[in-house]
Design a protein around this nucleic acid. Structure first.
Lengths: 348, 348
DNA sequence: TTGTAGGCGTTATCAT
DNA sequence: ATGATAACGCCTACAA
């Protein structure tokens, strides 16, 4: 850092000589042993003598040898690569943290992550799957349910260990770690009821997960004796402005509402902003409940009542279960519901 | 979606038969041609007869053949894999969008992204580099400057095309696309001056990029005749609460301040929240300037004056330049400064 | 237009 | 404890 305001454009446009990387044979030659002994000294140190192990290590240091995982993978049929397939990497996606802990946990076990975005139509998904299968990944993490059932079937057929993370689905491909959006909706309905709100409403995003939460909320609200719950729909991915628009619209059509269940925390923040702008007090006039418990939720004014998901734990668990399955252990419980927590703060 | 509230835990704990994937030999047998003909029909269709091409395609469909990129890469020394090395994937990081467009653009050219986090100490970085080199990636995207110069040297020595994205650095490893944090600081100082503010202050994060912006701001402010610029330091990664705390502290120590340059948009949002809570008006009493132009900036109340970075373009350009270099073209301009825009809105 | 032989760098198998 | 040999699946080089 502290670069000068105007860094000189060093035209480092060298043609890049393709560098002859040292191979195991080079290491073996330098160490004065056979290739296979060198291989064992590195991959299975316990079965070679102390002396050779040291010689080989020295030779590695001297030559700058880095094992070719392509060659190793070809023979051993293990790539030490795990595909992580996300809907799309947008900022503000709550699952980003899950990707972080997933990558970190896998790295600790010696696996790298190949990142794939599948939000580019079925054709793109198909091509992505080709790339994944073609690389002979050892496992696949699917974040957010994959809709197309032909692709789900294809995934199942590969025989590659798959773990779905984030959403609970009814018919998991193999393993699953996540939480139920429907249950969240129901839990929020109960929370709202317990706080004595009389006229609940919601802002729902046009996106399956938010829709599921809305559905759960609606169903439970009906059971609790609330009539129909007014809802307004907004586009995904959600933004603060959608919260402002949604709140304004609900307020116009249902001036008697007293609480809004928002699609996400960002939407909730927008709703609060809009209400403040219109001179309403939160939560005295209108309560607000969000979803996600993103890091700004606790610092909002008023602090946001919302639903917390432990994304980091989801990523970590997904990594652990996948590694266990890859390395042969049968999984005790292939479907894990990590649940959620309704975080009561000041906003609703 | 629309899963039942309580999805049945189907114990899908089958031991996973390792499935014999079809190889090119299988395809060749089914198609009644030799392996190499099948290979050509797929990789170089123009040089085989129409009839064989069709036979082979049919055989591929029948067998469900997916080429083994490990084997192909071993021979051709091309993995069609690009490593993307980020500091750490935290939510609210502005470069997430760059990763998105990078991944997308690379996918369109047939390259996949291997994701690596290097924020786990030098030892971790070293292991990460082993993984990257061992996989014989075709290129490396380094997001955010890599500090340790021994590692930079090692990276240079690999001969693998490298593009640094996000930060301008003084001595690029190879190619570079980004913007200058120092220049941003200076530009904001000039903006603040042009708006007639008299007592600028700033909230700086303990993190090299934010520090560089602060440094640029300070230097230019001095040149413009402002005295010393009071600054308060906050931890990274930045959160809204840091903005609240920082603003409160600055206000306590310098009640006469009239504008705050914040480390990030989230910090700016926190500062606004704190000021509102303390009964100050933004921008009438105190102006606020952020950094990042994250998607909520425009929807804040008041809309946030901030610095916009075109992260998507950074990712796209990085991908294009890298692919061009990988595929042999010499790069016209290996160092690209994409600049930034001071977005004037209502907050300052 | 199609086919044969050999090698990429590693590890599994079987010997010593 | 160490070694020779043969794959792994594909592609380049050369030949037909």
């Amino acid at each position: 850092m502290r670069s000068k305001p105007c860094p000189p454009s060093t035209p480092a446009s060298k043609p890049l000589s393709p560098v002859n990387r040292p191979t195991l044979a080079d290491v073996a030659k330098v160490a004065g042993v056979s290739k296979i002994t060198a291989s064992r000294a590195l991959g299975n140190p316990t079965i070679v003598s102390e002396a050779t192990r040291l010689k080989v290590q020295e030779a590695v240091a001297k030559t700058g040898y880095v094992p070719n995982l392509l060659a190793g993978g070809l023979k051993s049929a293990r790539s030490r690569l795990v595909a992580c397939l996300v809907p799309t990497i947008s900022s503000g996606s709550a699952f980003i943290l899950a990707v972080q802990s997933l990558t970190e946990t896998l790295a600790a076990s010696g696996y790298q992550v190949m990142l794939g975005q599948r939000g580019y139509g079925e054709q793109g998904e198909d091509a992505l799957l080709d790339a994944v299968i073609g690389r002979r990944v050892d496992g696949i993490v699917l974040i957010g349910a994959m809709q197309t059932s032909s692709l789900r079937q294809r995934l199942r057929d590969t025989g590659i260990p798959v773990i779905e993370a984030w959403d609970m689905t009814r018919t998991p491909i193999d393993m699953l770690v996540g939480f139920s959006h429907e249950k969240i909706g129901a839990a929020v309905a109960n929370y709202v009821h317990s706080k004595g709100y009389r006229k609940p409403t919601m802002i729902v995003a046009r996106e399956p997960r938010s829709t599921a939460r809305g559905h759960g909320f609606l169903k439970e609200a009906r059971r609790l004796g609330y009539g129909d719950v007014p809802a307004t729909r907004i586009d995904a991915p959600t933004r603060m402005r959608h919260g402002r628009q949604g709140a304004a619209e609900l307020l116009r059509q249902h001036p008697d509402l007293d609480v809004i269940f928002c699609a996400t925390d960002l939407v909730a923040l927008g709703a609060i902003t809009e209400l403040h702008t219109q001179g309403k007090r939160v939560p005295d006039d209108i309560g607000i409940v969000g979803f996600g418990d993103l890091d700004f939720a606790v610092d909002a004014e008023p602090p946001l009542t919302t639903v917390q998901i432990d994304s980091i734990e989801i990523g970590r668990r997904a990594a652990r279960m996948l590694v266990e399955r890859i390395e042969g252990g049968p999984i005790a419980d292939p479907v894990v519901d990590l649940g959620f927590t309704v975080m009561e703060r000041a906003s609703g």
